[in-house]
Design a binder for these strands. Sequence first.
DNA 1: ACACCATACTAACGACCGTCAGTAGAGCTG
DNA 2: CAGCTCTACTGACGGTCGTTAGTATGGTGT
Lengths: 223, 223
Amino acid sequence: MSDVEGELRDVDPRAPEAPRRPRAIGGRRAEIASAAARFFAEHGYHTVGMRDIAEAVGMRGASLYNHFSAKEEVLYAIALGMTKGPVEEHLPLLDAEGTPATRLAALLRAHIRNLAEHRVEHLVGLRELAALTPEHRAEITDYRRYYQRRVRDVIAAGARAGEFAVDGPGRAAVAILDMINGISWWLRSEHDVDEIVENYVGFALDGILQHARARDELRRRDG
Amino acid sequence: MSDVEGELRDVDPRAPEAPRRPRAIGGRRAEIASAAARFFAEHGYHTVGMRDIAEAVGMRGASLYNHFSAKEEVLYAIALGMTKGPVEEHLPLLDAEGTPATRLAALLRAHIRNLAEHRVEHLVGLRELAALTPEHRAEITDYRRYYQRRVRDVIAAGARAGEFAVDGPGRAAVAILDMINGISWWLRSEHDVDEIVENYVGFALDGILQHARARDELRRRDG
DNA sequence: ACACCATACTAACGACCGTCAGTAGAGCTG
DNA sequence: CAGCTCTACTGACGGTCGTTAGTATGGTGT
């Protein structure tokens, strides 16, 4: 009946060791989470039913419980992918060689590209935090706080080195991350991602993180 | 400005004789919307029931329909207050005397102060757009687009006048507004609003809107 | 070949939600 | 007082939702 095709046996990028599972069963999970993210992004978590998500991947609502133990688990998987992932894969860029400025620029570039590639998941992970279990929400916000702290620290290092001219590295970090995360609200497929990346890295590195220098120079000029 | 305080309603709501409060307040609508905004901000629009909102203002769920024709109307009132209001009250600051920089600074200051004063409404108006009727959502986004366009125009004027050094006034406008609107996600009552206002106006005016100047100067310095 | 297990299905339950109908008391107006 | 309005109440309906139980099926390992 249901013409579920088996062709999309996928390759999960992060499956270090698949425990004795010959079938690529993680793939269906990712497929469901991806479809759910699209729906959540467009209509909101609570207005989307399990039956809606199921239909999008070609099954009936109840069958989703073979892959997720609850609807909230789907949201949790989406949110976790957008917080834990970047922390583990992008944050090492801050430990690489180079000045704080080059390292931060590399991080922001990776961040924005990741956001553009997973726009809906990113949007959902930001917007639907309140729908998570308190424990899950705490875990997500912990990841986010850690990420933000690392950005703050590299900004502080750059300020000490004279690369940045900013007072309040913490506030600048928040401002930069909010500015960048705002992209997920309006990004459309017709936008030029490369251009956006360069614009925003410029806004952050040459703009916000130089604002104290520009401010002093402008004041000196104007008297 | 705050209207009706929570006067003593220590009476069992089931009591056949309800406490007679002084008539004369049309502020009941505002009181309901305000309580609803607090709940929506904390728990999300769909997880908050009419009965929850009602309880917060001392009535039963069905009685809310004497003030709003539907739950969505409550959300609409909140969102409208946070979009139409600023458009009509703050945007005239852009038509006042002064250079583009001083006028834009005045607008951003007013914007952030308004956001801080109505943090929950602002957050809800941003986050729960998807829960609005298509017609209501279109109206809200129209207001927001218009606001954004006006900001873009004053940035373009400042760039022509040499006050700003930015390429792409539209993108800078979006970045600045996203950065500022991000405040509503983390603002707490213990924050110093005045300090935030000055920080963010600096980020925008001396930072993002000067990034092309800073970029060129840094490149010249570094070779 | 057989057992197993992952996965899909159908059917239904219980809870909750937005909303409405109908009612009643208080205050104002004549 | 009579009559109208405003606002709150009770009670309930219809629908939807997340979730569970029980069952069927087909591929896989032994």
